[in-house]
């Protein structure tokens, strides 16, 4: 195999991992941008989405219905989570909220361990589209589906927030919660909706992830969750195109370092880039440098 073909294959590998990170990062950034909460349980919602769809698929349900029901299930979970665990703490310090989110993450992981046992389970992948062939390079269907879905969702979300009335409400809550309330915006409803969209996105990510790596376990969400969080920060947390860009950059750097420098050093270099990035551009690549309000 020639070096050029190999290089393109690695670029495609990078894009694939990148689109998974991007998809997860979308939900992170959405919730952070509007509710100002880093939802550490986001990675675990991915796991919940995967298990929900596994259970539904195992009943013999058609994959499209199973997917829709899993998204709705996760959205419901996100809604409840916000009402029960986060809303009562909205006036509390940022740290309490963060700790609650971490607690939520462990709660989900451990309850799923009790229900489904810690043993990994096979996931019946249902994306069986023909692979794409470009010259001597084959691109499997999982690769391009994840890529298309994440870019598509980015565009839709961006339009939703920029163009619709509800999106406008979200932006105003993000900017100043108090002022938004005075203007007659239903803040509680807006934040609930944000969580519903964010967790729904996580379910989509969970299902695509399980189609790509067909083994699921109760702890499957933690590592991709952390990587996606890094992607969101890198791209500028709160920015929707930033999350996707951050995801792709992260996936690409990781892959190219593994391929051409060393597998052992991949994570070291990724985190080094993150630190350098944060030192020189704390708001991330596409993040706005907002002055602290007094």
């Amino acid at each position: 195999m020639s070096g050029v073909v190999m290089f393109f294959m690695q670029i495609i590998n990078g894009l694939n991992i990148g689109s998974i990170y991007a998809l997860i990062a979308l939900g992170y950034t959405m919730v952070y941008g509007i509710a100002k909460l880093i939802n550490f349980a986001h990675g675990d919602i991915i796991m919940v989405g995967a298990y929900l769809s596994l259970v539904l698929l195992n009943t013999g349900m058609h994959w499209s219905l199973a997917t829709i029901l899993s998204i709705l299930g996760c959205a419901l979970l996100g809604f409840t989570m916000e009402k029960v665990a986060y809303k009562p703490l909205r006036k509390a310090s940022r740290i309490s909220l963060l700790i609650t989110a971490i607690g939520m993450s462990y709660l989900l992981q451990n309850s799923f361990q009790i229900i489904f046992s810690a043993n990994p389970k096979p996931y019946p992948a249902f994306i069986h589209l023909p692979a794409l062939k470009i010259g001597s390079i084959t691109i499997s269907s999982n690769y391009y589906t994840t890529f298309i879905v994440s870019v598509f969702l980015m565009i839709v979300l961006n339009l939703y927030i920029k163009k619709t009335k509800m999106g406008k409400a979200m932006r105003s809550v993000a900017e100043d919660e108090g002022a938004a309330r005075l203007m007659g915006i239903n803040v509680d409803q807006t934040i609930s909706l944000t969580f519903i969209i964010g967790t729904g996105l996580a379910a989509v990510a969970g299902i695509l992830y399980s189609n790509c790596y067909t083994i699921i376990s109760p702890t499957m969400g933690s590592l991709p969750g952390i990587k996606a969080f890094i992607a969101a920060v890198l791209g500028g947390i709160g920015s929707i195109p930033g999350a996707v860009l951050g995801g792709f950059i992260l996936g690409m750097v990781e892959t190219l370092v593994k391929a051409y420098i060393s597998s052992q050093l991949a994570d070291t270099i990724v985190f080094l880039i993150l630190i350098v990035m944060l030192v020189f551009k704390p708001a991330g690549i596409l993040g706005k440098n907002v002055k602290e309000k007094v």
Binding site: M9, Q10, G14, N16, I17, Y213, I215, S222, K258, A259
Partner: peptide
């Protein structure tokens, strides 16, 4: 905790 081995396998 790696699940994607495609880079190494490539």
């Amino acid at each position: 905790d790696t699940v994607d081995f495609r880079t190494q396998l490539t």
